[in-house]
Nucleic acid binder design. Structure first.
Lengths: 207, 207
DNA sequence: TTTGGTTACTTAACACTGTTAATTATATTT
DNA sequence: AAATATAATTAACAGTGTTAAGTAACCAAA
């Protein structure tokens, strides 16, 4: 059936057009400016056509959220060459902070907005695999650090959540302007770096 | 001028009515369900009347944000009796976590949403005094701990931002459903507690 | 090739949202 | 009582997500 195949191809093609348009609007104008009508304008279809390819707006944001994770994974390729797990842990934190500050829109939809999680809840496998994988990596590194006696022993889940909590807290306070009045805007990256240093130093056995 | 006084009184009375209605909607239905028209319905005025008392919706959210801080300060009264600064620091963290988990809507408008900060930016004194005061308290406690040799010495600003970052991170991840898939919902408060314990233990000199 | 049926897409509309200009009603002052 | 200033309203604009109903395009069988 060559026809069915072609149809399928066209369908995924339009899906891609919609996501590309959403992405463009998202990156250039931000979360709030991604509207169904603007997407439709960009792909030169009527607004209702969008609903033939996606259940609702949340589902589109879910895919943007996935693209954000892909971008983040890409950035984390620089971890592969680092043998020392403690150094790798440090670099992971640095990557996280950099990603959040350099791509606040993506960070927003990945970790702050409710939309993608609501779309996820309406899916067959309601598992947040991308987020879980990321935290899994963190847990692995921590376990390795503990096994080699580089950091103080403690339940990995707790330490992982704590570290993730801190870097997420720093980024989200910053991009939602809760730090600007307290720490001069230009100093924020530096202070974040210092916070990360301080935390990892506190748990370092040779600190 | 008794008339001017009475007028002034009426004006602030209607302002209060608007804020009370907003608060009611906010607490009962959440951030997204606070609309100008619903507020107007509750106070039995037309929607446009709201604009005679508040510049825009963000300004209303700014006041809700302030009410949230008032609520939080109230909760923190239990710190007054604690002489040991390290114990006080611990209780502060606990209060923060409890407040966030028990009043997610308030936490949202206080630390996550952009609206109140935008309203604040349009004011004469664009200073986030409430947030800054809260962090000031944290810095004081930390300084006291360091002076008494209870925790390792480090730049207070850095440690303060780090701790705030972590508790904020934990709460905001939780209330935006980023932890639910990873930590069973009923275990979240316990894990948070453990995270706080772990962090404060890490910096404790007698740990 | 023409008919019938499926699929793809659009038009029109609903029920909302924040916000503003113009208008009416109310209260105060002359 | 008439003129003026203030308060509140109606009507509307320009958006939003989303759905029901109608139209055009394509493919399969007669």
């Amino acid at each position: 059936m060559g026809i069915a195949e072609r149809k399928e191809k066209q369908k995924t093609e339009i899906r891609k057009m919609i996501l590309d348009a959403s992405m463009k609007l998202f990156v250039e104008e931000g979360y709030d400016h991604v509207t169904i009508r603007k997407i439709a304008d960009l792909i030169e279809y009527s607004p209702t056509t969008v609903y033939l390819y996606f259940k609702d707006k949340d589902e589109i944001f879910f895919h943007l959220h996935e693209m954000g994770f892909a971008k983040f994974m890409e950035l984390n390729q620089n971890l592969l060459g680092i043998a020392n797990p403690l150094m790798r842990l440090y670099k992971m934190g640095e990557n996280y902070l950099h990603f959040g500050m350099n791509h606040p829109e993506f960070y927003d939809v990945m970790f702050i907005q409710r939309a993608p999680m609501q779309a996820l809840a309406c899916m067959d496998d309601g598992h947040w695999s991308l987020g879980d994988n990321a935290l899994g990596l963190l847990q692995q590194v921590l376990q390795e650090c503990m096994d080699k006696g580089l950091i103080k022993k403690a339940p990995v889940e707790v330490v992982a959540v704590s570290i993730w909590g801190m870097v997420h807290g720093l980024v989200s306070l910053a991009i939602r302007d809760r730090m600007a009045k307290l720490v001069p805007k230009e100093d924020i990256p530096k202070v974040m770096q210092q916070s990360l240093n301080w935390l990892l130093n506190s748990i370092d056995n040779n600190g």
